[in-house]
Design a protein around this nucleic acid. Structure first.
Lengths: 151, 151
DNA sequence: TCCGGATTGAGACTCAGTCTCAAAAGAGGC
DNA sequence: GCCTCTTTTGAGACTGAGTCTCAATCCGGA
C-alpha cells in the first residue's frame, strides 16, 4: 500500500509547487497511506507522537496545496485528513453517528456515472458548474449496534 | 415560509423532550427558517446581534436534541446549522468551492429512491446499517464563474 | 565552504465552542 | 397577587483545535 510510486507521485506534486519532499512530509504521507481512513489531528498525534503539532498542520496545508491531501469534515466538530482521490481512488465515506468512525467505500462505476450525470444537471439548473461531489452514508457500525441487536 | 405550523411542530418536538418553546429558541428557529441555507454561528451573530453566543449555542443544542435542527459541516472549518429535514424536506447542498456559498437543492424522488437502495446495500456489505446520507455537490457558482467564462 | 532560501520546532496567540453560576422568567399551587 | 420550585438565560471564564511568529536548522547550488 505504501509503495515507491506513491512517494514518487507526491514528490512530483510538491516540486510543481516548489516544495521539497522532506522527512516530516514523508512521515505524514506514510501515516495517511497506512491509516487508509480519514485521520484527525488527534490520530496523528497518537500515530506520530514525535511530530510537533504545528509541523503536522503545516505539512497538511502544504500537501493540500500540492493536491496530495484533502480535508474531510466528519460528523463531529474537528477536521480529518486523507490522501486525495487522485492519489488513491474516488470513494465515499461510511460514518458511524454513534462512535464517529469513518470507513472508506468505493462505489461501482455504473453508480458513479449515473450520479455524476444527474448531479451535473441538478447543479446546472441552479447556475452551478459541478466539479466533484462528496457523499457520506450515515449509520451505525457493527460494533455500535452489537449491544442492541434490535436497532 | 415562516408559518404557524412550523412553530407548532417545533413546540411539540420540544415538549416531547420536556422543554419550553421560549422567545430565544423561537428567534433561532425563525432565523434558520428565514435563511433557507445552513447558517454559521457568525451568520447568527450578524442576523441576531442581541442574542448572546452562549445562548445561541445552547438553543442550537436543545433544538438538535428535539430533532428540529441539524448540524452541517461545510467546506471550511466551522459548523453550520439548518432546520432538520423532517421539518423542511430532504435536500442536498451545492457548495461553491470558491466563495463558500451553500445552496439547498431538492433531488427527484426517483433519484433518491435509487440512491437509498444502492447505499443501503453498500453500507450492509461493510457491516453498517445506513440511516441517512449527506450529498454535497462541489463546484463554482455563477457569480464566481462570471469573470472567467472558460473555466 | 559559504550563502540564501526553504523547512522546522517551540510556543504564543486566536477564536469557535463549552461550561459554570447567579439572575430572571415561568408554571403551578395557595 | 404572592410564594416556591424548576427551567431558562446572560455574562464571562475556560478549553482546545488550528494559526502565526520567529529563531534555529537544513539543503541545494555556486
Amino acid at each position: 500500500m505504501v509503495n515507491d510510486s506513491l512517494h514518487g507521485l507526491v514528490e512530483q506534486r510538491l516540486r510543481q509547487v516548489c516544495q521539497r519532499y522532506t522527512n516530516g512530509r514523508r512521515e505524514v504521507v506514510e501515516l495517511l497511506a497506512r491509516a487508509g481512513y480519514p485521520v484527525s489531528i488527534g490520530d496523528i498525534a497518537e500515530l506520530a507522537p514525535r511530530l510537533p503539532r504545528s509541523s503536522a498542520y503545516r505539512h497538511l496545508v502544504n500537501l493540500q496545496q500540492a493536491g496530495v491531501v484533502r480535508r474531510v469534515s466528519g460528523n463531529d466538530e474537528f477536521s480529518r485528513f486523507e490522501l486525495a482521490e487522485e492519489i488513491t481512488e474516488h470513494h465515499h465515506h461510511l460514518v458511524c453517528t454513534h462512535c464517529g468512525k469513518v470507513i472508506d467505500v468505493t462505489p461501482t462505476k455504473a453508480f458513479e456515472e449515473a450520479m455524476n450525470k444527474y448531479l451535473a444537471s441538478l447543479a446546472a439548473s441552479h447556475g452551478f458548474a459541478s466539479d466533484d461531489h462528496r457523499l457520506d452514508i450515515l449509520g451505525s457500525c457493527s460494533t455500535c449496534r452489537a449491544p442492541q441487536p434490535q436497532l
